[in-house]
Design a protein around this nucleic acid. Structure first.
Lengths: 182, 182
DNA sequence: ACCTGAACACCGTTCAAGT
DNA sequence: ACCTGAACACCGTTCAAGT
């Protein structure tokens, strides 16, 4: 899987060949297909593997510095990845997920867990009167996720991937979106 | 190009073959390569062709019903497309744009024109005191675009492509984002 | 039980040959 | 000048043969 990550990052999902991944991993094509049923399944495994240990960090930051700082942690991470050249790969994963039900299912459970985590932090922040109490937590968490991904992909597309500028844009939008109504 | 659209919609960008497009168009492979230098160039031509006549409609709606209704026109259009099954193709186009500088350049000029259009409508709405006057128009236009694309792609990924629900989500977020500060 | 790597089916692209 | 379609180089995947 490390070999596949290296190859995909270097050449993108569709450009990287199974032969290259085999060479990088030091195994034959037959052996690779013993562990992954297809090329698409390799992405699914990679993406699934990427989340997890960040969850704890997020909740800690939400308690210590507030919801928006915690969101900026996630957003900043994502923008760094895009700036490092993973944009096309991320878009490939999205495309592959939209097309393939099996991949979508294996990724969306992970995604829903992330949304639930943010929703929980939103409820905490509402209890602390830090943000608007009339926001529906799940829906707001989803919207914030969409905003992060949308800003990141747009910036990759427009070749404006400076992660600091991207984070400023997200922070400003999130503050407006979350601030209490009058 | 109509043949390519039909094939891409039916099977996706990477799954559709040049042979299929040739058959659908009723020409040979050689003839196709007389008009398009590569498969990637066909997407670029399609995407470039898609905008244009909507611009006038947007400005009229912005004048008649306000900025948010006009934005909902664009967003609704986009969500309809995703619900009709174009999500994977759109993600493919984004991935291809991020990877390929030539495609990115040909698409981004069109994209910038769209952002400029929204920015203009934002300035008008600010003059009418309809929305927050402290928003920077270009940056806000970009953020709204990112929000539309982010919501749409996320919903396609999560298999929740009902365009009415998507539009409600966008409208609520846009209202919060644009409303005057206190 | 697990791996190898040649072979298979198929792809995007080219170009000599036609009209 | 423009088109045809067989041929080329190369891809993801398989499977008989090895260890």
């Amino acid at each position: 899987m490390d070999a596949a990550i290296a190859c995909f990052r270097r050449r993108g999902f569709h450009q990287a060949t199974m032969q290259e991944i085999c060479a990088e991993a030091g195994i034959s094509a037959g052996a690779l297909y013993r562990y992954f049923a297809s090329k698409a399944e390799i992405i699914a495994a990679i993406a699934e593997d990427k989340r997890g240990e960040r969850d704890l960090l997020f909740l800690q930051e939400a308690q210590r510095s507030g919801l928006i700082e915690a969101l900026c942690l996630i957003a900043g991470d994502f923008f760094e990845k895009l700036n490092a050249g993973d944009g096309a790969l991320i878009a490939d994963i999205i495309a592959e997920s939209i097309r393939d039900d099996v991949i979508a299912q294996s990724l969306s459970s992970n995604d829903r867990a992330g949304v639930e985590l943010i929703a929980k932090a939103i409820r905490d922040a509402q209890a602390r009167r830090e943000i608007d109490a009339t926001l529906e937590p799940e829906s707001a968490a989803n919207t914030l996720y969409a905003l992060i991904e949308g800003i990141g992909l747009r910036r990759a597309f427009l070749r404006e991937t400076d992660p600091v500028a991207a984070l400023l844009q997200f922070r400003a939008a999130a503050e407006r979106y979350l601030s209490p109504r009058t």
